[in-house]
Design a binder for these strands. Structure first.
Length: 514
RNA sequence: GGCGGCGUAGCUCAGUUGGUUAGAGCACGCGGCUCAUAUCCGCGGAGUCGUAGGUUCAAGUCCUACCGCCGCCA
């Protein structure tokens, strides 16, 4: 198959700071990107995120703060960027739709569709919701012409606008989805998309008159108009990498994975493909659709105030903790639930007790009995326990990456924890601390510890897509270089290798007693 | 109104093309160990698998209806 990948998150609308839900998307995409990088090599994977900064809502939000739109989005975009940095989201591109490079690219794409005859002008009168930034038909609205998502009356607006032909490409998009069963993942969303595409589609209004809204990219063929924010934002998936790499569009973009939330399935399954086709571009590889992350059982929303700030959780519990929780607990594609209580449960049970304590006991014994030095290489000496350990750790990374490839992040982590279970059991079965009391049995103790240290090494490496900081910390404690870190089980650590003393990776969180 | 999803132990969920006493983690109880972050290992209790029918030698797993929750489309 293809050996280069392009992975994107949605381009986040910049009118409010990120919450745990947007963080989840960035983290899932990041785990996917990191997993693919270790399979294909760093240079073959590009990972893109960014902020969507045009449109009426942003202009209004900026106005409310008494500042120009660009100044407003400079600030909000930086908040996203810092949040992603704080969560160790390893993007290669952070695109802002206000980047000059992006704006030029969008104009090129508009010109292409225009010259192909896919963009036409039409007088239009309709009911417009400012919050949604779109027109509605009366059937879609609640009584008294109230917008169903914003619960606000819509405005009747009459104006000339430019439209992009959508229905022209409908059959082609349907055929593509049918010929590529995993084009939209998971399946449930594929069916919904096909449903949406089953009937004729209205063309997409892609302009706004400057008289009403100036905050946007000017149309290359009519300076009285700017482009609609949604048309603009999609191209952020392409603009920056295409500008940097001339071969991007033909060689890399066809194997793009778009990570999106289920709320924007329609725009990505129905409107984005015709936009691409009309501009003469190929379609992407996967649309990877996730559900909501609820908060304490309730839908997170700014209006109800139950919005969890992702960065504060990393700050409070340590690096990788929110990453672990979301990737372990949420099934990709289904709705999940986030709560501090469950986060602490997971932290203590999985991170402190299983992973942290395992690390601690292995390194402590290595230090206590051999001054931290491995006197032999890992090997299967005693058939039963040694072989069980080798079986649990063998091909672990490959198995994890295979799960991630299908977006089963939770199963990838489960596989690592199953290996940890076996490793903890191995200590009880072999009881090196008992053998160590007998001088004659020290060689066997050394062998057991070499095997355990090797197991820890593989676990540390396997964790990287999900918990990059913890992975690094474990590998640093083991003092292994990059090549040894990535070796198959049994071939990483050598005799004579020196490891560092234990330190607690995840101190237990004691329940607060009031 | 149409289409689709979900409903399995106290909690969160797995359950392949229908096939032996329905599984895991957490929580809880008992036992063991002491290298380790009072951690680890073993054992255990608990479920009429939403309801009612049906197909089958055999159904959580297929069919029908209904109830409840949710999503998409109209």
């Amino acid at each position: 198959m293809t050996d280069r990948l392009h992975i994107t998150t949605a381009i986040f609308y910049c009118n409010a700071p990120p919450h745990v839900g947007s963080a989840y998307e960035a983290l899932a995409a990041d785990a996917y990107a990191r997993s693919q990088r270790r399979r294909l090599g760093r240079a073959r994977v590009s990972f893109l995120t960014g902020t969507d900064e045009h449109g009426d809502k942003i202009r209004r939000a900026a106005e409310a703060e008494g500042m120009p739109p660009k100044e407003f989005t400079d600030r909000t975009s930086a908040v996203f960027r810092r949040a992603w940095d704080g969560l160790h989201v390893s993007y290669d591109y952070f695109v802002r739709t206000t980047d000059p490079q992006h704006e030029q690219f969008v104009q090129q794409m508009l010109a292409r569709s225009h010259s192909r005859g896919d963009i036409y002008f039409k007088d239009y009168e309709g009911l417009y919701c400012v919050g949604c930034e779109r027109f509605y038909t009366e059937k879609e609205l609640l009584p008294a012409n109230v917008c169903p998502t914003h619960n606000q009356p819509v405005e009747r607006i009459s104006e000339g606008n430019y439209f992009l032909r959508i229905d022209k490409y409908r059959a082609q998009v349907v055929e593509h989805i049918q010929r590529h069963p995993d084009f939209i993942r998971p399946d449930r969303y594929r069916n919904e998309a096909l449903n949406m595409l089953a009937e004729p589609l209205a063309d997409l209004c892609i302009s706004r008159p400057k008289a009403r809204l100036e905050w946007g990219i000017e149309l290359p063929f009519d300076s009285n108009y700017v482009t609609y924010v949604w048309y603009d934002a999609f191209w952020a998936y392409v603009s920056a990498p295409a500008s940097r790499d001339p071969g991007f569009i033909t060689e890399v973009f066809p194997s793009a994975d778009h990570f999106i939330g289920k709320d924007i399935l329609k725009t990505h399954a129905v409107y984005w493909p015709p936009m691409l086709l009309s501009a003469g571009l190929p379609l992407f590889r996967h649309l990877d659709v996730h559900g909501w992350v609820n908060f304490g059982g309730q839908r997170m929303s700014k209006s109800s105030g139950n919005v969890a700030d992702p960065v504060s959780y990393e700050a409070a519990f340590g690096p990788d903790v929110l990453r672990y929780f979301l990737l372990r607990e949420v099934v990709y594609g289904l709705d999940g639930d986030f709560s501090e209580e469950r986060l602490i449960e997971r932290y203590n049970a999985d991170l402190a007790n299983d992973l942290g304590n395992f690390t601690s006991r292995v390194l402590s014994m290595a230090a206590r009995y051999f001054g931290g030095q491995l006197t032999c290489a890992p090997a299967v000496e005693d058939d039963a326990p040694d072989a069980a350990l080798a079986a649990a750790l063998g091909q672990l990374v490959e198995r994890v990456d295979a799960q991630v490839e299908t977006l089963a992040f939770n199963r990838g982590l489960e596989a690592i924890w199953q290996a940890l279970d076996v490793a903890n059991k191995y200590i009880v079965q072999t009881a090196p601390f008992t053998l160590a009391k007998d001088q004659a049995k020290l060689p066997r103790v050394a062998q057991i510890l070499a095997n355990l240290t090797e197991a820890l090494r593989v676990v540390g490496y396997a964790l990287d897509p999900f918990m990059p900081v913890t992975s690094r910390r474990i590998l640093d404690l083991l003092a292994v270089d990059q090549a040894a870190a990535a070796a198959p089980y049994g071939q990483g650590l050598k005799a004579g290798h020196q490891v560092n003393p234990a330190s607690a990776l995840f101190p237990r969180i004691e329940k607060k007693v009031r």
